[in-house]
Design a protein around this nucleic acid. Structure first.
Lengths: 117, 117
DNA sequence: TCCATATTTCCATTATTATAGAAATATAGA
DNA sequence: TCTATATTTCTATAATAATGGAAATATGGA
């Protein structure tokens, strides 16, 4: 991942309204949520929410699809993973115990390989 | 983690100079690096670097210790893990495959439990 | 004490970003 | 076609952040 891409994503997240939107969508999973529902849930005017969703979209963190009159937003999980990977690149340097806290954080999401064990 | 804490950390990272410092320190491990070395490595004036280090420190992402005339900076791994955890909180919702890309990102850092297997 | 090195603080200029009212656009249904 | 709903775009004002020169502070050694 390019540094400039990561910075755009981090800038997008570094805002009280937008991080709330992001976390709502991370929790919402693949179904996502329509713009209006998000605006109501976070008690934000529709045009302000529209700007926030546009910024998160341009940053690659979320995606949208139209469904009838609504626009449904979803988290872009692979892109999010790429951002986290960029932040922690080469964190181990042969001593995994250094960044063990990071691995522990990810323990909620066992990989398919780990689930098979 | 409080939302305001996460925003301060993300704001600190959302900057070309500061994310370069952050990643340099993530790679540097527990030994860290002195301010002057970091400034030289990233070709940044000492006062500008000082401001950048201060912002990352205030955001809780890095720590410093004095060693003779130098100030050594290190990444604060537990705090970083807490930030990543905040971003991905409740990402699974009973369906771990949704955020599998995130788990795959963390595969470089097997936890002690995983290493024992 | 005096000097060199390492880092930080002060400051002013310049540039970027946030907010929401009002208007515009898109879709669906009567 | 007309109306209601859903969302976005346009716009101006207000607030915040980045940069690096110059000066200040802290440490160690002669």
């Amino acid at each position: 991942m390019e540094s400039s891409i990561a910075i755009e994503a981090l800038s997008a997240l570094a805002h009280p309204g937008r991080i709330a939107v992001f976390r709502l969508l991370v929790r919402a999973g693949a179904e996502g949520a329509p713009a209006g529902d998000i605006a109501r849930a976070l008690d934000t005017p529709a045009n302000t929410m529209s700007a926030q969703l546009a910024i998160l979209t341009r940053a690659g963190l979320i995606r949208s699809r139209r469904e009838s009159r609504s626009i449904i937003y979803t988290a872009d999980y692979p892109q999010i993973a790429a951002l986290l990977g960029f932040l922690m690149e080469d964190c181990c340097q042969g001593r995994p115990e250094i960044c063990a806290p990071v691995a522990a954080m990810a323990a909620c999401c066992p990989s398919p390989a780990e689930k098979a064990q």
